[in-house]
Amino acid sequence: MARRSPEPLLWLLFSAGGMAAALLVPVLLFLFGIAFPLGWLSAPDHTHLLSVLRHPATKVILFGLCLLCLFHWAHRFRYTLYDGLRLKNLSLVISLFCYGGAVAGSVAAGVVLFRI
């Protein structure tokens, strides 16, 4: 077998991120960005929402969503820089920036979520 490349795993994170973002983000945006502010649905009060957010299942799902979306961004942005801007010769720097950024963002999301 050829040298093991991380590409398949990165692609799995990328595609899982695309799927998760497509399924969950529009719902969250609709609820918290449109329906609650416009009063189409009665918004939950702060203590209710906080207790939902403190539930471990909510934390895990939101953390997973943040992580997958960030890795989706990282993979896509890496190829945008590679092919769109023809910067493939800087691949090491670009990979470190993109996936490093996704790791840092995920850690930050984890810190915020699990401290609540």
């Binding site: 077998m1 093991r4 398949p8 795993l9 692609w11 799995l12």
Partner: peptide, 8 residues
């Protein structure tokens, strides 16, 4: 990708 995951 499934194959690599399995191998891993």
């Amino acid at each position: 990708a499934t194959r690599s995951l399995k191998d891993l």
